[in-house]
Simulated scan of single mutants.
Amino acid sequence: MQYPKPVANLIDSYMKLPGIGEKTAVRLAFFTIDMDDEDVQEFASSLKAVKTQLQYCSICGNITDTNPCEICSNPHRNSEQILVVEQPKDIMAMENMHGYQGLYQVLGGVLSPVNGVGPDDLNIKHLLHRLKDNSQVKEVIVATNATPEGEATAMYLAKLIKPAQIKVTRLAHGLAVGADIEYADQMTLQRAVEGRQQI
């Protein structure tokens, strides 16, 4: 027996989410059917809002509903440090730690020749222009994930930034190899920031 078309379409939509297989998608679809109309409308509005009301900060590349974002426009942040992350979700993880008060730069990924991702596919040029235009920056903290691609990206950035006489550090390996920043607990992140090393 086939599902009615609206249910089948909803199942297909849920299966587009990462980590959602067919069984989970079916369960979510039938859960959605049983939801109150008001909750469904709110859910749909939330989905639409993240696509229509968000933009990328013109300074750091973080997702925001204002440009520049709250972090870049906050005069109390330490403008001498820029912490470089792979994705906006990594900024959220660092901010939840409440131990870092500097600025950020989102690369939009990592170098991965196997997947066809080179320097021009990331926000590396933007970072370099930002460093050139801002003489206040004394340290760039590279916080890419502890993966082979993350390590290669960190070394590439260090090679580009060091000639500008800016200190380049890397998060300490309190993060397990292969771990993503967004899933690390706050204590691990705190130790990683405090134990960063120059590269």
Results as ranks from 00 to 15, higher is better:
residue 168 V to E: 10
residue 151 E to D: 15
residue 122 L to S: 08
residue 171 L to C: 06
residue 191 R to C: 10
residue 23 K to R: 15
residue 28 L to G: 10
residue 36 D to H: 13
residue 107 L to R: 03
residue 159 K to M: 07
residue 170 R to A: 10
residue 119 P to L: 03
residue 172 A to C: 12
residue 194 E to P: 00
residue 37 D to H: 08
residue 141 I to H: 03
residue 118 G to W: 02
residue 102 G to T: 08
residue 109 G to S: 04
residue 136 Q to M: 04
residue 15 M to K: 12
residue 161 I to T: 12
residue 132 K to C: 04
residue 68 P to K: 01
residue 146 A to T: 12
residue 47 L to A: 08
residue 155 M to T: 00
residue 91 I to M: 11
residue 171 L to E: 12
residue 157 L to M: 11
residue 72 C to E: 05
residue 12 D to V: 11
residue 89 K to D: 11
residue 1 M to R: 12
residue 16 K to R: 15
residue 13 S to K: 15
residue 92 M to I: 15
residue 197 Q to D: 09
residue 63 I to V: 13
residue 161 I to W: 07
residue 169 T to L: 11
residue 52 T to I: 04
residue 59 I to H: 08
residue 149 E to C: 08
residue 136 Q to Y: 05
residue 132 K to L: 06
residue 51 K to W: 10
residue 6 P to C: 05
residue 33 I to L: 15
residue 195 G to W: 04
residue 73 S to K: 13
residue 62 N to G: 05
residue 104 Y to C: 01
residue 195 G to C: 07
residue 146 A to W: 11
residue 77 R to L: 07
residue 179 A to P: 05
residue 170 R to D: 04
residue 66 T to I: 13
residue 134 N to G: 02
residue 183 Y to R: 09
residue 193 V to R: 06
residue 190 Q to K: 09
residue 25 A to S: 12
residue 199 I to W: 14
residue 34 D to Y: 04
residue 81 Q to Y: 08
residue 8 A to Y: 12
residue 121 D to Q: 14
residue 102 G to P: 09
residue 43 F to T: 14
residue 83 L to S: 05
residue 183 Y to P: 00
residue 107 L to A: 03
residue 175 L to M: 14
residue 169 T to S: 15
residue 3 Y to D: 07
residue 59 I to N: 01
residue 14 Y to R: 06
residue 63 I to G: 02
residue 74 N to C: 07
residue 23 K to C: 09
residue 180 D to Y: 06
residue 15 M to F: 03
residue 131 L to P: 06
residue 86 E to P: 00
residue 94 M to N: 00
residue 159 K to L: 05
